[in-house]
Structure formats: structure tokens, C-alpha cells
Amino acid sequence: MSLPRSSNTPSPATLVALLPEVVSDVAEQMFFGWAEACDAAQSEALIRDSLASAGPDWVHVEVAFRGAIDGVLHVALPCDLARDLGSAMLGMSDGAALSGALLDDAAGELANIICGAVLTRGEQTTQFELLPPLISRRDPSAAALTTGVSFFTINDRPMIVRFAGREP
């Protein structure tokens, strides 16, 4: 399906620039978390700490979108962080009580909301379509080594976001 384009369609770089504000808002409002952008060196240190304390189990989410700009938002975060965010969303005190399926669901919803908010705030008037999140479990290296990524901390743990968009 071809969605209508607007004459004031923002560039992908403009949308990437919205990520820090959007990630902070989503973490705070939906997951009661504290998020901020960080640089690659800080992220690398956080990833190292995370690998040492929680192991290499990371959840990766890809949300494809179509509209004035087509592309994919990729979010990667440690499973224990996704578990804690999901628990906070549901008001649970014990993150371990969150099942694996709900953990994936929490990560998927996190990525879905970030993607929707970036596109909404950037495009505002134009129509877009979000596809269902694709979720996988891998170590963080695949995301961290990719070019064009943005690094964040949420509750002092690492999260990697890559917004790859192109005009169709």
C-alpha cells in the first residue's frame, strides 16, 4: 500500500535527532524509568558491566514502518532490563515474576512506542504504518557494532537504538 507523502516530510536525520527526547519520555511515562543518551564509550562500559553481571542474553526488537519515510527501528537491551521495565509497567515488585513471553512483549511495546512517537513527532500530519515487532534473542554485539546507532542508558543499564529510514 502506498501512503501519501507530505511536502514537508522530515529527513531521517531529523527523526534520529528526536530519539533522545522520545526515549526519555517513553521510559518515564510508560515504564517509570530514567533514560538519557550516552556516548559510545559510556555505552561500551555499561555493556561490559551488563555482560559480566547478567550475561549475554539480550532482546532485539525490529519495528518496520512505512509512510512518507520507510525504514526500521532496531532496539536492543539486556533481558534483565526488559524484565525490570515490564515489571515496572505492571506495578510488580519482583521482576523475576515476569514470564519470558511478557518480557518479549515489554521489549516489543517499548520499541513500538518509541517508533510511533518518533514518527508522530517528526511527521505529525502524514500517515504512516507500523508493522508488528519482530523479536529475537542475541548477544549485544550485532547491534553495538552497526553504524548509525544511538546509545542510551535506562536505569543505568545500556540500550542501543538504530533508526534506519529512507524516503521511498
Binding site: 517513553v26 518515564e28 510508560m30 510511533g116 512517537a117 514518527l119 508522530t120 500530519t125 504512516f128
Partner: peptide
């Protein structure tokens, strides 16, 4: 309640007698 807060979707929902449109993220 949607992550898609575009005017196009809001207008579409309004036309179908939706009372409120809550955009994610929300408190």
C-alpha cells in the same frame, strides 16, 4: 490508544465516532 498519533489517524478515528484518542506514551 495508539503509538500512532498522526493527524491522519486521529481524523480517521474521529470520523468513526471515537470520543478520545490517547497517544502513547501516556501516564
Amino acid at each position: 490508544i495508539s503509538a500512532d498519533g498522526s493527524a491522519a489517524k486521529r481524523d480517521g478515528a474521529d470520523a468513526l465516532n471515537t470520543l478520545r484518542y490517547i497517544e502513547k506514551p501516556f501516564k
